[in-house]
Simulated assay, not measured.
Amino acid sequence: MRTRLAAMAVAILLPAHLLPASAFAQQGVFQNRLGDPLPSPSITSPTLPPSMPPAEPEAQLSLSALLSGAGVPLRQGLAWRIYEDRGDGTRPSIVGRSTEAEPNFTLPPGAYVATVTYGFASASKRIVMGGQPATDTLRVAAGALKLAGAVGDQKIPAAQVSFSVFVPVGTNSEGRLVRSGIKAGEILRLPEGTYHVVSTYGESNAIQRADLRVENGKVTEATLNHRAATVTLKLVAAPGAEAYAGTAFSVLTPGGDTIREAIGAFPQVTLAEGDYVLIARHDGQVYTREFKVESGLDRDIEVVAKAG
C-alpha cells in the first residue's frame, strides 16, 4: 500500500514532459515527440476541394449553302463535314457529317471548321460555339457543265459518247484530269474557271476537243460536233453475200498505224472522217481493201475473199 502511494506521488510531482505517454492516453491527450499536445481530428467539418464551375451546355449549329453571285440556295448534291479546330497544328478530326441541304449539328463549346462540297467545288468557314444555338451560311463558288455529242444535226446516243474534263496547266491543255467517263446529259459541278473537254465517239479515233468556260451560278451547255461515221466490217465471198464468221479485222491508216482491231462476222467500228486500209484474216488467208469514211454516212465495208 505504501509503495503504490509513493509511485502516485512521484507521478504527480514529475513535469509533464517526463510523464509516460500512457498517462496522457488515459486522459485523452496526444503528444508529439517534443511533448506538445496534438490537435484532435475533426469529423464534423472535413476540408473539401473547391467546387468546379458547371460545364457549358452543347448547342445546335444550323447550316445552309448558297451559290456565290447568284445567291441561289443549294438543295441537293451537298456533302457537309464538321472538323474540330484545336489550333495546335495537329490534323483536325471530323466530329460531324451530313448530306442534307440544311443540316443541324449538336456541338459542345469550342472552335470548329465547317466545310461543304458541291461536286468538285467546296467552301469552308471557321465557327466558334459558346453554348448558344448558331446559324451560318456558306457560299460556294461553282457552276456546272452539261455536255452532248452530235454528228451534223444528229445527236449521238448517250451510250455511244463519253467525255473527259481537264484543268489546263501552263501550256498543257490536259494538265490535270478532273474526271473521265462523263455521260452525255450529266451535270458536272465545277469551280468557276476554264476547262478542256475531250469527247470520244465510239472506241476508236472519233475524238473532238474544246475549251469551255464555267461561270458561277450558271450551267454551261455544250455540244461537241464529230465528223465521223460507224461502219460495219464484213468478209464475203461475193458482194452482198453472207459474211464469214470468226474473221479478224484490222483497220489501219494509210501510213500503217493500227486504229482498231475486231473479231466477228460483222463488227461495227466508229471512225473519224478519212481514208483507211482494212485487213481481213480468215482460215489462214489475208485480204485487204482501201475505203473512205464520210462524216454522217454509216455503211457496210465489204472485203471480197477472192480465190487464189
Score class of each variant (00 low, 15 high):
residue 110 G to I: 01
residue 235 L to S: 10
residue 174 E to V: 06
residue 263 I to G: 05
residue 137 T to W: 14
residue 131 G to F: 02
residue 176 R to Q: 15
residue 228 A to T: 03
residue 71 G to P: 06
residue 260 R to E: 10
residue 112 Y to G: 14
residue 23 A to D: 11
residue 291 F to K: 14
residue 284 G to D: 04
residue 235 L to G: 12
residue 292 K to D: 11
residue 261 E to D: 06
residue 305 A to L: 09
residue 107 L to I: 01
residue 181 G to E: 08
residue 81 R to T: 08
residue 178 V to M: 02
residue 260 R to P: 05
residue 122 S to E: 08
residue 77 G to S: 14
residue 233 L to A: 07
residue 205 N to E: 15
residue 28 G to L: 13
residue 149 G to L: 03
residue 30 F to N: 06
residue 214 V to C: 09
residue 8 M to Y: 12
residue 236 V to K: 02
residue 49 P to W: 00
residue 176 R to L: 04
residue 264 G to P: 06
residue 206 A to C: 11
residue 190 L to I: 09
residue 242 E to D: 09
residue 143 G to V: 01
residue 204 S to G: 12
residue 143 G to S: 06
residue 119 G to P: 12
residue 290 E to H: 09
residue 124 S to Y: 09
residue 4 R to Y: 08
residue 143 G to R: 11
residue 247 T to C: 10
residue 229 A to K: 09
residue 189 R to S: 00
residue 156 I to V: 14
residue 99 T to V: 02
residue 56 E to K: 04
residue 144 A to D: 08
residue 257 D to T: 03
residue 190 L to K: 13
residue 57 P to R: 07
residue 135 T to V: 08
residue 284 G to F: 01
residue 86 R to Y: 15
residue 171 T to E: 15
residue 189 R to I: 00
residue 296 G to I: 01
residue 47 T to F: 08
residue 301 I to Y: 10
residue 258 T to P: 15
residue 53 P to Q: 13
residue 159 A to W: 03
residue 180 S to I: 00
residue 178 V to Q: 10
residue 235 L to V: 08
residue 288 T to Q: 08
residue 188 L to P: 03
residue 117 T to C: 00
residue 269 V to A: 01
residue 208 Q to T: 08
residue 153 D to G: 11
residue 146 K to L: 08
residue 303 V to S: 06
residue 272 A to N: 10
residue 110 G to S: 10
residue 164 S to A: 08
residue 155 K to M: 14
residue 217 G to Y: 03
residue 295 S to E: 07
residue 283 D to W: 00
residue 13 L to C: 04
residue 177 L to N: 11
residue 206 A to Y: 02
residue 220 T to V: 00
residue 39 P to L: 07
residue 297 L to W: 04
residue 85 D to F: 13
residue 176 R to E: 14
residue 78 L to S: 01
residue 156 I to G: 13
residue 23 A to E: 13
residue 173 S to D: 14
residue 124 S to W: 10
residue 67 L to F: 00
residue 32 N to L: 07
residue 262 A to M: 04
residue 211 D to P: 06
residue 248 A to N: 08
residue 202 G to I: 01
residue 307 A to R: 13
residue 144 A to C: 02
residue 295 S to Q: 09
residue 89 G to M: 03
residue 97 R to G: 10
residue 292 K to R: 10
residue 160 Q to F: 01
residue 106 T to D: 09
residue 70 A to G: 04
residue 46 P to W: 05
residue 16 A to W: 10
residue 301 I to S: 14
residue 113 V to S: 04
residue 89 G to Y: 01
residue 298 D to E: 07
residue 301 I to K: 14
residue 172 N to Y: 07
residue 225 N to V: 00
residue 286 V to I: 05
residue 240 G to H: 00
residue 171 T to A: 15
residue 7 A to C: 14
residue 84 E to N: 07
residue 177 L to T: 14
residue 300 D to N: 07
residue 193 G to L: 11
residue 219 V to T: 11
residue 132 Q to E: 12
residue 49 P to V: 00
residue 14 L to P: 05
residue 251 V to I: 02
residue 298 D to P: 13
residue 83 Y to P: 11
residue 105 F to N: 10
residue 241 A to Q: 12
residue 62 S to M: 09
residue 280 A to C: 07
residue 33 R to F: 11
residue 79 A to N: 10
residue 106 T to F: 05
residue 51 S to Y: 05
residue 186 E to F: 03
residue 56 E to C: 07
residue 149 G to H: 12
